[in-house]
Amino acid sequence: MTVKLDGTTAEVLNADPLVIKNQKSHFHIHSYGGWSKFFVGLREGKLLATRCTNAECDEKSLWLPPRCECADCWHATEWVEAPTVGKVYTHSTVLYPGAPFRASTPCPLISVEIEGVCTKLMSYLKEGDPEIGMPVKAVFNTENPTNTILDLSWVPA
């Protein structure tokens, strides 16, 4: 039996200590599973949240990010269209994002307070300068969707 190398080499970045460059290029096949409805909804211009279906559960508000099962009683939830208007709960403008960030900077991140929702969804303000308490409305990237949470953003209402 004879074994041959494939001829590729690891680039040497430093001689002593020996430092080499390990090339990494692979992708993950990621399923949104039960949350798919939410992301498909964004492509269709809908903001879909969930609500617990257990009549005995105390939590009657909507969850956004959605949950297919309730955190308080583990029962199944149902999908409900959430209001597409809200208020800026807090914000921060990112100047130095991490490497894979797909939007331009400066990018104002916002957490959005929506009536009837028990959480404060993280998103970004597509236009304008953010201020706490500012009314905003959702906009959906339906033209050329990224199929990620970036397909939802907000503008001043």
């Binding site: 949350w35 990010p65 914000h91 921060s92 994002p97 960030f101 991140l109 993280m122 998103s123 990620t148």
Partner: peptide
């Protein structure tokens, strides 16, 4: 699914709380 894509930067998530 819902947050990392928004900046890929923990400092930003802390900055939201800071504001």
């Amino acid at each position: 699914d819902f947050e990392s894509e928004l900046g890929w930067m923990y400092a930003a998530y802390y900055a939201l709380m800071a504001q």
